[in-house]
Design a protein around this nucleic acid. Structure first.
Lengths: 96, 96
DNA sequence: TGTATATTTAGATGGTAGGCTAAATATCAA
DNA sequence: TTGATATTTAGCCTACCATCTAAATATACA
């Protein structure tokens, strides 16, 4: 089940999209990600929450750190929803 | 050139997504669209502005009415950007 | 246990977004 | 030009969002 509402809202913020872009290269801890941003770790934590509630990322504790990674399966759904929204024919006809 | 920033922001609002869904069925005047919404025509006009600045819709005056229609080409770009964002292979390899 | 490190949660604040009403603009038709 | 219809623009208000600092939680290590 795709939470369109939360997904679109999550994608609306440039910092969140940048987090996703970073995670695209591989999993990273909250601290590692923070190094690339000018905002506080607390603010980033808020963004992680938004991305998680949209199921776009996942988190896993590893020792003292919390490691975030991309959840690619949801992206398939988003791409399909978007294609549907614009009535674009896609070869896989709606990966669910 | 895709204005990601404005496109994502435009898609973040449910009323705007609903406007797009309505226009998917065909062009409609501002007044016709308004019939499906509980908000004022002035508020809708604001949403048209946001959608236009993202180049997601186009407008054309026809007599006293202004008729809105979907700009599907931009959606191809959005779908591609999204696919890129998640590193999903697509058959058309990025329609630009 | 006590302390340091890593991250989140709580609470406050400024800015932006979306809603409204009222006024302005544009077209049509007398 | 005058009046009616269609839509946008202007101004205001409220709610939400991104950000901050400070405090809380969780883990590691001595």
């Amino acid at each position: 089940m795709l939470r369109s509402e939360q997904v679109f809202r999550a994608l609306a913020d440039p910092n969140r999209r940048r987090i996703l872009a970073i995670l695209k290269a591989g999993s990273r801890s909250a601290g590692e990600i923070a190094g690339d941003f000018p905002i506080s770790m607390a603010s980033l934590s808020h963004h992680y929450g938004v991305l998680k509630s949209a199921d776009l990322i996942r988190s896993e504790r590893r020792g003292q750190s919390i490691v975030y990674s991309l959840n690619t399966t949801v992206f398939e759904d988003v791409a399909s929803a978007l294609a549907e929204m614009f009535h674009i024919e896609r070869p896989d006809g709606g990966a669910s």
